[in-house]
Design a protein around this nucleic acid. Structure first.
Length: 285
DNA sequence: GACTCAATAT
DNA sequence: CATATTGAGT
């Protein structure tokens, strides 16, 4: 069993600290401006795409006109137009779905940063996933840390890593996703009395782009009877991807609308307000 | 303000 | 159930 550990160890060593190779960490989360279209009233977007049609409906945060009465309804139209501001609408984002790929990025970022610098802001920056917020990362990080702690306390032998099964009986509460990612060797805390960390890195300037066809798709998780998401990685559906613009920084959020109808996964209830923001990591890993 | 943690809400 | 949100302490 010890072999396992040493195995990843060397692997990680190679994989990690290489500046040259590290930079290409950039992925964009949600699809681009998909959502800027509601209140325009009569204007319409042209959709001639033979894609799935997205629909969005969201609740404006109630910019609150003074006085009262929230329209409990669905939307209100408030200011717009005249002023000429890009509306940085404070919309409510759909829940982020942490796919194994996304989580991998997360782990990579943390690994590269070193425990010390691995704080939400930095991680988020390094990940360069568009749309990802600090809170998203913070929340996930919190759980991730708990996961690591748990693993430490447990026997090193039975470590249920790798993938697949996990059978903790006691309190498996926080795992699944974590378990499927190659947990770096020892994020496990080691107290450093006076040793500092190495890796004097700098925030990577994520200004570079590659021409790789990465695309993102909005997938919605329709669960409710389904446990564990399979692999979406491969576009099992006939629809392949499309290329969108990826904007980095700035740009409000976009959320995907309801799935409308996909080939599968919706039967009983789906018309719920279940919206999830998920990115589609493709490719390379 | 930002980070961490626990508890809680959805 | 997985995330988000909130509150308190540093």
């Amino acid at each position: 069993m010890r072999e396992d550990e040493s195995n990843w160890f060397s692997k990680w060593e190679e994989e990690l600290p290489k500046p040259e190779e590290l930079i290409p960490l950039s992925q964009t989360l949600i699809t681009p401006d998909l959502a800027i279209a509601f209140d325009i009233g009569s204007s319409q977007i042209l959709h001639n795409h033979h894609h799935q049609s997205f629909q969005h409906h969201q609740q404006p945060p109630a910019i609150s006109t003074p006085s009262s009465q929230p329209n409990s309804g669905e939307f209100d139209s408030s200011e717009l137009g005249g002023g000429g501001d890009e509306p940085a609408r404070t919309l409510k984002r759909p829940r982020l779905v942490w796919t194994p790929q996304l989580h991998k990025r997360f782990v990579d970022a943390v690994a590269h940063l070193g425990i010390k610098n691995a704080v939400p802001k930095t991680i988020m920056q390094l990940m360069s996933v568009d749309g990802l917020t600090r809170e998203n990362v913070a929340s996930h990080l919190q759980k991730y840390r708990l996961y690591l702690k748990r693993m430490q306390g447990l026997s090193s032998g039975g470590g249920g890593n790798g993938a697949g099964g996990f059978g903790s009986g006691g309190d498996p509460a926080t795992d699944h996703l974590f378990a499927s990612s190659p947990v770096p060797p020892h994020f496990l805390h080691q107290s450093h009395p006076n040793s500092d960390n190495f890796l004097p890195y700098m925030p990577v300037a994520a200004l570079q782009q590659q021409h790789h066809h990465h695309q993102q798709m909005a997938a919605v998780a329709g669960h409710h009877l389904h446990r564990h998401v399979g692999h979406f990685g491969a576009a099992t559906n006939g629809q392949s991807n499309h290329q969108f613009l990826s904007r980095q920084s700035s740009q409000p959020l976009h959320r995907v609308g309801t799935p409308v109808h996909n080939s599968y996964m919706d039967d009983l209830e789906s018309a719920k307000e279940k919206k999830a923001l998920t990115l589609f990591p493709i490719g390379d890993d």
